[in-house]
Design a protein around this nucleic acid. Structure first.
Lengths: 92, 92
DNA sequence: CAGGTATTTAGAAAAAATTCTAAATACCTC
DNA sequence: GAGGTATTTAGAATTTTTTCTAAATACCTG
């Protein structure tokens, strides 16, 4: 829920690749997994970290779980960075 | 030099705090260290990671080493996030 | 409900990150 | 150059992260 979790989630290359995949639209856990040379269990682990960081959310349909990018949290991270770069905001 | 290193560097709370400190202007390694309850060696380790990620650069003066925020790399990260959020950029 | 597919959870092994203490390097001042 | 302060490097201990295999859960279909 905080930036700590979000930045941690973004720090792994597999998780960033997952987010890039989801940019095009929602995908099931299995479809996501098919893009990587890893077990489904490992993909599930990464999806869980992204979900806890609110970077993705899930959407259950039949016996598939579709994942989608949560753009608003991406925006929050951008704001944090903008503030870092902008500086001086709490000045008299 | 790549996003991998940059996001990894941003993933640690101590390192993000260091960046926030440097937002106000350059500080020596010792001054940075005085804000944390850690040994100088540990601070040096974190500064090195930030330096390798190009998020900060150093400026040697007398026997102090001053560190400064590298705004341009912060901007690059923001661009990566903007693209993630923007989607669709390589479409016909 | 039996069988099947999709996904997650548990537990363990391996790899990577964080921190410390102690020692080394760098550079300045007298 | 001797002594002093600032910072980094080396090596080791601890913690966290990543990954796997095996088993469990969930849900759908006939």
């Amino acid at each position: 829920m905080g930036f700590a979790e979000t930045f941690k989630a973004l720090s792994d290359p597999v998780r960033r690749d997952i987010l890039v995949l989801l940019k095009q639209g929602s995908l099931s856990a299995g479809e996501i997994g098919s893009h990587f040379d890893m077990t489904g269990a490992t993909i599930s682990y990464h999806l869980n970290i992204l979900k806890k960081a609110d970077l993705i959310f899930e959407n259950r349909q039949k016996n598939f779980i579709y994942y989608e990018l949560n753009v608003s949290v991406v925006e929050e991270v951008m704001l944090w960075l903008a503030e870092l770069k902008g500086g001086n905001e709490h000045e008299a």
